[in-house]
Design a binder for these strands. Structure first.
Lengths: 208, 208
DNA sequence: TATATAGTAAAACGATCGTTACAAAACCAG
DNA sequence: CTGGTTTTGTAACGATCGTTTTACTATATA
């Protein structure tokens, strides 16, 4: 054995994550990463191998720290529509609470992936994986809500097709809200509120 | 007077536009632009001043050549829901027709702006202007369709709020389809078809 | 304490970036 | 044909990029 690490691996990754989140992959230079993490190039390269390696660690941390906690409520939350309302409500509140100079605006994947996923297959796979995970979580919450409040009127002709449409609509509102969060924050919040309203239309009841 | 330009200004701008569309702003180097346009640095800088000047010209051309023609059908099209169905249908068909190696995948603004709009106010203004224009066009088409097919059942409690929600839903589906077009093209098409289906639900009738 | 191992610091690397300078070539007006 | 203006070709510029190298320091183990 030799000398021990003097820095906290997780803290460094999160500092880098916020920088990528804020500036994007290309615009975040190694000098910026040194300043943000407090580490020198040597330590960064020794610990992560490359700028891309650090970015990958940042993305992994983002998924585990930011995304999955948000989605967990959809998977294991209440069995009525409140899980969906909580999801969009907390997302809207988080977007509203961010200062305009916050480093965490929008979605790290949306901000960076649009640039990287164009010609980088690994990045594309990460973004697609996120989309699938989001859609699956929304779908789960939607079926839970449907079980709690069975079809309002006539039996749906093709319940599965309706479900697909609803999943896409909600996923679309989530993604586009993240996309324009850095351009027009109030509109991003309005999009998330639109999602909540749509849920209330689908599942009227005493929940709200 | 002196020597005349030997190249077609519009052709050069469109070649640059396709390159930016495909690779993004940062990743499109001047060497790439030389190759794509067939011009040397001298000519490019003489005609456009800088890389950014060429990009701005490309964005302007994109709005006038690609975006506005698409939106014009929403503003001056049929007075029923078919204008909306045409819009999403042609967008879906265009997305489906693109080869996976096409240089025109997704939306130039979505692909580039996510990177630039973060810390560049002019870019942010362009993106926000596009969003406003898209929303206005969708709103116009929605009110036209509503006039043609007056409220199906009971009078809407707040017709304006309903309209806002519908505009946001359709704009969201358009934008998110462009966002993930380079990640999963079939899902992008599915999002656009979801928009069409939603329109059909709102405006049932003999149009379809 | 000796030694091997691992973290840190500093500097320089080669490559690429957007931009500019300079001069030759091409053309219109007189 | 000539003067003046504009376009184009070539080359170099300075800056910045991510990466690598080299040397040095610190610490756990034996």
């Amino acid at each position: 054995m030799g000398r021990l690490q003097t820095f906290d691996h997780g803290v460094v990754v999160q500092a880098a994550r916020d920088l990528f989140w804020n500036k994007g992959y290309d615009a975040a230079s190694l000098a910026d990463l040194e300043a943000a993490t407090g580490l020198g190039r040597s330590s960064l390269y020794h610990a992560f191998g490359s700028k891309r390696g650090l970015f990958d660690a940042a993305v992994t941390d983002y998924l585990e720290t930011i995304i999955r906690p948000r989605l967990s409520g959809l998977r294991s939350g209440a069995t009525d529509a409140s899980a969906l309302l909580d999801y969009f409500g907390s997302l809207a509140r988080a977007t509203a609470a961010q200062a305009s100079d916050s480093v965490q605006i929008g979605c790290l994947l949306v901000n960076c992936a649009a640039g990287l996923a164009a010609h980088d297959d690994p990045s594309r796979a990460v973004v697609e994986g996120y989309r699938i995970e989001l859609s699956a979580a929304l779908r789960h919450a939607l079926v839970s809500a449907s079980v709690a409040a069975p079809a309002a009127a006539a039996a749906p002709i093709d319940a599965n097709a309706v479900l697909d449409e609803r999943v896409r609509t909600l996923a679309s509102l989530s993604m586009s809200a993240m996309l324009i969060a850095r351009v027009n924050r109030t509109e991003a919040i309005a999009l998330l509120n639109t999602a909540s309203n749509q849920v209330r239309v689908w599942f009227p009841g005493p929940t709200h």
